[in-house]
Amino acid sequence: MFRNTYDSDNTVFSPQGRLHQVEYALEAVKQGSAAVGLRSKTHSILLALKRSTGELASYQQKMFRIDDHVGIAIAGLTSDARVLSNFMRQQAMSSKMAFNRPVPVNRLVSAIADKAQVNTQEYGRRPYGVGFLVIGQDQSGPHLYEFSPSGNSYEYYAMSIGARSQSAKTYLEKHYESFADCSLEDLIKHGLHALRETLQQDKDLNVNNTSIGIVGAPSVHEKTTNVSFRILEGETIQPFLDTMVPKDAPAAAPAPPASTDEDVQMAE
């Protein structure tokens, strides 16, 4: 690894005006497996790639429910994520208790960003080694935010974080304009396509390594009437995986084919 004179303490600027410890923390996020988030007018969704340490191990949890209306996907140090998600849950509870109101998503994200910022400025601390995609629904509709250990948070139409997330970002940048009016099924299909871009050549998405998080009305593939945040894992995501266009197929736009099963045939 490279060595640097100005990286042993996060309170010291380098001559270039950079905080190396903070940048290393951002690297920790890039080491984590990828997560993708998308937003339409009606839904926010998360998709994440779960890793396992080996054949005998279970897959590492990538998504956490914060409250009925908020959920997160993480990339980076899971233990740091648990500390932060705990904090978010407390914020959500205190908002419910004090004001009988689900905590506004933007304020929740600002709260953890402020918490992370302190760690980039105070002596003897270290930045969090984890990044979040936060989705949620509040009075102003569905939202998607990115949180990073530098203390920054931004709202997005679509975003990806984690290992090889640039490939997913490229896919999202190409298609994001259609997301606003997408159905939930199409939105998830876009998400799966984007997430697939982050995989190595010989790997593919399956029911074991993929998590889907949803806020908004349920899909036709779900056996629920639940509109609050939920995490789909295992066999329940098979119907969504089935909607994906195979990788080596010609890059057809993921638009549904014109229906051929009309019960009235027009005469020539």
Partner: peptide, 17 residues
């Protein structure tokens, strides 16, 4: 902490508080 973000406290929230 949130001026103009569309989440101003209304009468219901004030009453609960």
């Amino acid at each position: 902490e949130g001026d103009g973000d569309g989440h101003a406290l209304g009468p219901g929230e004030i009453h609960e508080y």
